[in-house]
């Protein structure tokens, strides 16, 4: 009897929390690329929530759903982006700023990458 109730409560909790939990993983969160150079941040939060892009804007035409797929390819380069592939499909200078400008908007660098991995502190706490 007690076991039944525990199961029931757990089930209810899952039922209620489930959708909420699912909403959080509605998109891929932050993707930190490290190939071909270390430290490029793609923020799903920015592109999906703030800019209102749909999943199928990029998936699976430009990027596979599975993270790391694009990185594994040889043509995942700035040259390729300039030719309109990957990020360059939108970042062409008209839809969004060109991938040939504002380098450090997306390139967070080794510093940003390490911060994302929690290897170094956020800059505000570096030194007092």
């Amino acid at each position: 009897m007690r076991l039944f109730f525990i199961c029931l409560i757990c089930g209810l909790v899952l039922l209620i929390a489930g959708p909420g939990f699912a909403e959080d993983v509605d998109h891929g969160g932050d993707i930190h690329f490290k190939q071909p150079v270390v430290g490029v941040l793609f923020s799903h939060t920015l592109h999906v929530e703030e800019l209102g892009l749909e999943c199928d804007s990029c998936h699976e035409g430009l990027f596979a759903y599975e993270a790391g797929t694009a990185e594994a390819k040889d043509d995942f380069t700035m040259k390729s982006l300039a030719e309109g592939n990957y990020c360059g499909a939108c970042h062409d200078g008209s839809t969004a700023f060109s991938s040939e400008t504002r380098c450090a908007v997306c390139h967070e660098g080794v510093k940003g990458y390490k911060r994302a991995l929690g290897l170094i502190n956020a800059p505000e706490h570096d030194r007092k």
Partner: peptide
């Protein structure tokens, strides 16, 4: 300066 992306190569 604006071309540096901190790849640290």
């Amino acid at each position: 300066q604006d071309r540096c992306i901190d790849c640290e190569r």
